[in-house]
Write a protein that binds this DNA or RNA. Sequence first.
DNA 1: CAGTTTGTTCAAATTTTCTTGAACACTCGT
DNA 2: ACGAGTGTTCAAGAAAATTTGAACAAACTG
Lengths: 191, 191
Amino acid sequence: MPTAAAKQQDLNDSQPLWREAELRAADAMGRLMEFWGFRRHMGRLWTILYLSPEPMTTAELSETLRLSSSAVSLSLAELVRWGAVRKTWRPGERKDFYQAESSVWKLLRRVYERRELNLIREAIEAFGDAQEHLDAVGSQLGGDERRRVDHMRKRLSRLSALSRAGERLVRLLIAGRMINPADLQSAEEED
Amino acid sequence: MPTAAAKQQDLNDSQPLWREAELRAADAMGRLMEFWGFRRHMGRLWTILYLSPEPMTTAELSETLRLSSSAVSLSLAELVRWGAVRKTWRPGERKDFYQAESSVWKLLRRVYERRELNLIREAIEAFGDAQEHLDAVGSQLGGDERRRVDHMRKRLSRLSALSRAGERLVRLLIAGRMINPADLQSAEEED
DNA sequence: CAGTTTGTTCAAATTTTCTTGAACACTCGT
DNA sequence: ACGAGTGTTCAAGAAAATTTGAACAAACTG
């Protein structure tokens, strides 16, 4: 019976020569995606598909990355929902084949549109709520309390201005238009 | 003995009227920060300090957010490392006081500089390694294998170009200069 | 229609991350 | 130097997430 080490060696031997390069790229993308708030396997799977000239099956993917078929199924489904991967089929084959959406720019845009924009909008809303709340109680107060609330009001309106500026920037990004980061800078200066 | 609900009510009653607004804003920022890969408490604590006209002590912070003193200490220390919060002291007081860095733009820039830029650089390096690896094995092959490796080479060089374009964009952002997202778009078109 | 093959869902198990209270360390005033 | 008041570190416990194998479901074949 072969030892575990020997088995591992066999595995290495049976891999195509370019497997190593493929895995390094996949890992790099996995780290990027994980950092960006996605499952790491989404980045890894997408990269394998992106580097492959042919669509691949779940079996090939799970073999390449040594993932269970359920992990592959889960992450692929999410990639499909994000439009990062498409299913295709081949005449005479019953399996599903997957291929990567190859325009990274398109994908970036979609994520900013669906996810980041939403996040910012929620923040804008929350800051707005907080401001309303302050306005409601502010009038009842005097003295120290009043000064305190006035300070909060100024700061909150800066946060609101900043987040609205952020929203505009993301919109511009999505539209592929020029962005001026100085807009953020000035959003918190005006008073 | 008061019930738990009654205790909670007492607590509510003893809070200043603006506490609710403060907490809403803090929570919104906590969500943003958590999404952005930081501890959620960092966003919450920073916001409380940002809204306060006076520097605050750890005791006040832990009371406001109902956090253990160790949680406060941990997150504050990290905020200090990021330059998002500064310690100050008052004559005659032994406690540490904390105040928020109030320029959000400065903070954004620092994070992009220290963290995102680094992340992209690591990815660029990894893609570069993968390319070298491919070049090393590519020459030994022929036929199908050769075609396969050529395809990978094209795709990898696109990933490299994209990540280098990303690095340039982040640099521009940090410098506060205009950014053209179309640079990303064109980075993956040229072949 | 029975039997395969393939894909998805689910709950349990594992791993990772977060939170906390207690122990430790440090500083200052007496 | 001692003791009170602060702040930090650490290990244990709690919570959250990821991962997996197995059960289930769906689609096709003969």
